Simulated scan of single mutants.
Amino acid sequence: MKQGTIYGVGLGPGCQDLMSVRSDRLIRGASHVAYFRKKGRSGHARSIVEGLLGAEAIELPMEYPVTTEIPVADPRYNALLAAFYESNVARLSEIADAGQDVVVLCEGDPFFYGSFMHLYTRLRERRVPVSVVPGITGMSAAWTATGQPVTWGDDIMTVLMATLPEAMLTERIAQTDALVVMKIGRNLDKVRRALARTGREDEAWLIEYAAMPKERVLPFREVGDSVPYFSILLIHGNGRRP
């Protein structure tokens, strides 16, 4: 029997009309659809494809055992997630071995800071056929929402996770031309201090819910004491132009 294929399908930043034609085709024709979600939640990836799944599609929710309950540095964090990925790879492999394809829904692009890559490497080790469909990243939608190009000429763009140590954030922000900071959430104060130390507060913008119905763009100086999960900080480059 021919093995089925596991498809990591990029959904883009959050609205159906920014998905690729290939993603749309695979999702509508899928017999099995897997997606990540937090316990007790429907899952953002699943909500993006509402109305697209076939009536007979079998849904395979993959519920994270931990998100923010314990620190990332805690050894238990990696152990719990490793076991979680291994168990889901076993489940997906069993379906593929039975000759069935599975579409795994991936917010943004599957290879850009997404959970799917942890499945991908393990599936490849098992020699299970895997195919990846790229998607528009959230940061692309964010800088488009500002109405300004993010890089010019020879600008260097840096993408940072706000979870990094403050000293590293400060150093990288000072060195780059254009900047994207993701995973701000509980790290808002740290990011604010790093921007202040580099003197770049007035250059920064915050984009909430890029390409979604609640999209909002505002100067970072006007940000309050908290930001939504779907928030990205941007600094535009100002490099060489004709």
Rank of each mutant, 00 (worst) to 15 (best):
M1L: 11
T137K: 06
A82H: 14
Q175D: 12
L233G: 09
P242C: 04
M1V: 07
S42C: 14
A167P: 15
Q175Y: 14
G4S: 02
G43Y: 06
Y120L: 13
D177T: 05
Q16Y: 13
P213F: 08
V72E: 09
A204C: 05
G14K: 03
E166Y: 08
G147W: 12
W143D: 02
A45N: 02
V180A: 03
Q148G: 06
K214V: 00
L195C: 04
S231Y: 10
M168G: 10
G135P: 12
L206Q: 08
R76H: 10
P149Y: 06
R91L: 00
P61E: 10
S115P: 14
A194N: 02
M19I: 05
K2S: 14
R28H: 09
P75M: 00
G8Q: 07
P228W: 01
A196M: 08
I156L: 15
E86P: 11
E203V: 02
E94H: 14
L11R: 07
Y209W: 15
Y77P: 03
Y120S: 13
G199Q: 04
L218A: 00
R172V: 04
G4T: 07
Y229Q: 00
E222A: 04
E86A: 03
A210V: 00
S140V: 04
L123R: 06
R126E: 07
A73S: 13
V227K: 09
R91T: 04
P129S: 01
M212V: 01
T146I: 07
S140Y: 10
V66Q: 04
P65K: 00
